[in-house]
Design a protein around this nucleic acid. Structure first.
Lengths: 333, 333
DNA sequence: TTGAAAGCGGTACCAG
DNA sequence: CTGGTACCGCTTTCAA
């Protein structure tokens, strides 16, 4: 169709300088050759607009300078924010970033990871949808992997940032319990895709300890996904007195449902979220939720990855402590 | 460090089947060879877990099956949503997607585009930060490019989805004017990076026509960026009676500022946004804003790109019509 | 229908 | 210090 403007190759630069391709390759990377020819080659190369083709280099076995961030679901607002934060951090250390979105399907996450590794990304930061979904081992053997949120059991990752969900869940339920709530619905997106996640187990445990009735309800990610479900839940006869959403995005859907049903928060139902997305503060009433320090998560994940890329040794690990932000969605202001 | 498990190569499959690499290559793509050997090769290949290395294929000049989405700024909530919608649409047509984030810097956008093209993405969907930032021509010559939001002048893109900002801005300002507002602050993120965008020119024109005073204020993307600015703006002596934000994210920052200053919306200041992000409906008061039908934008963009990849001819273009959603942030409910 | 061989654009090993 | 050259893994003429 169009005339493709071929880019300059190393052989052309070699011809232009009267050197061999090998010499040019060395010169441009500051190896072997005299600093004099190095200079000359650099000049000619930039005049010709030459830059090494990353694909050719990758095929040979080198690196691409590209790191992949694999998001479990970009429907989720907090995940969107985390992704953005990761890109920022990676750029700060001069790594280019590509993002891929598994859209909530664990199998897809693994497939994307494979594809990205095939494309020779230098490293992978992944927030798994479900912990045990398939053969991550092979991936981790080919490229450094840092996980966020759920460790991959039995896989040799180079770093993990995990959330202390047990404490986070327990704190929230204790808070609700102390306000007198005994019938609490817990909405979680991960139930459907990965039953048995730690957060859910924590819910059950805390429920028993506190002597309250927690009904776990599987739920679509995202506002639009959770609103219909919440509508049904809250319109029913045996309406819970509080709803605990394992993601702020889900809580927004509950807000929408309450608005539609004319229910007052927290008078008719108390609502708690779980990520502290920036918008949660702005809602009316502001949403009680749990802050994990998104910025710190991103910083650690990138730090772990970079140190592995630089040849660092031991696997690194950081446990994020939850910070319950009590706002008016549970406690009337 | 670790033992890298080498993946199977075409030569190994060739050896295993007693054929030549060429025959295997053909067989796997259903070309030339007899359907009998085709079958046999397929079986052996899948047994060995063989899959063609996309990098080698790309180097040879083929395609990668990967499309890149280049976002102007993932700080912006609406852009985040658009990105997600694009991924969904692309997956629906079996294209894999990678996302890159220019984070509001036009120059970075171009650099990322170059890098992605170097990595042999098959196509590019880009929502430009600023229209005239550098040499997009060379990019568009190597790979099909679809733009969203701002066409790239003089560049041979294969498709464009543009917003009728003129009408959108005029409608909003007319709405505010009809409510009696005469001193309106217009917050725009693009002023700083790309002065002279159409939206801004539209503001000036509409201001003149309606006989109202519009003060254009450059503004950071995102809630956290706009809040301090809004604080300053609204705490000043000559406070505007209405604020028109050229992105919902910015409006959220204005909400935050109003909350801090104890200003009532719309009593003390009316606020209007410009994207209709799903959350805008949920705020108190719900935000008056302009809907562009994000889903339709994504569908068209992907349709344009796919038709170009399939060899389609003429450049395609769609103009999105604005839909003003009047809510209580301008008209008390 | 199948096979041999020449690339795609670099890099790294080996002589010189 | 520099130049030849054999790869990396796949595709695609061109012959057989």
């Amino acid at each position: 169709m169009e005339a493709k403007p071929k880019r300059a190759t190393i052989r052309q630069v070699a011809a232009a300088t009267g050197l061999s391709p090998a010499a040019v390759s060395y010169a441009l990377r500051g190896l072997q050759v005299s600093s004099e020819t190095q200079e000359r080659v650099r000049r000619v190369a930039s005049e010709m607009g030459y830059e090494a083709d990353p694909i050719a280099r990758a095929l040979r076995g080198g690196t691409t300078g590209m790191v992949a961030v694999l998001a479990g679901s970009l429907s989720d607002f907090w995940t969107q924010g985390l992704t953005h934060a990761l890109q920022r951090e990676l750029r700060a250390v001069d790594r280019h970033t590509v993002v891929a979105d598994a859209d909530g399907v664990p199998g897809r996450e693994l497939e994307l990871a494979r594809r990205l590794v095939d494309h020779r990304v230098d490293g992978l930061i992944v927030s798994p949808v479900g912990p045990s979904s398939g053969d991550w081992r092979a991936i981790a053997e080919r490229v450094p992997v840092v996980t966020i949120g759920d460790a991959l059991p039995g896989v040799a990752t180079v770093g993990e940032v995990v959330f202390d969900n047990d404490t986070g869940v327990a704190d929230t339920l204790a808070h609700l319990s102390s306000l007198g709530h005994r019938r609490i619905a817990v909405l979680s997106w991960s139930l459907a895709t990965a039953p048995g996640r730690r957060a859910e187990r924590a819910v059950e445990r805390a429920g028993v300890e506190l002597g309250i009735r927690c009904a776990l309800v599987p739920c679509a990610y995202s506002l639009n996904g959770s609103a219909p479900l919440a509508l049904e839940l809250l319109a029913g006869a045996d309406r819970p007195t509080a709803v605990f959403c394992l993601s702020d995005s889900i809580a927004y859907g509950v807000y929408a449902a309450c608005a539609e049903l004319g229910l007052r928060i927290p008078g008719d139902v108390a609502v708690a979220g779980f990520d502290d997305h920036p918008i949660s503060r702005l809602l009316s009433p502001p949403l009680t939720t749990t802050d994990w320090d998104c910025g710190a998560v991103a910083r650690s994940a990138v730090e772990f990855l970079v140190s592995a890329l630089d040849g660092g040794g031991a696997v690194q690990r950081r446990v994020m402590a939850p910070q319950l932000r009590v706002r008016s969605s549970t406690v009337p202001g």
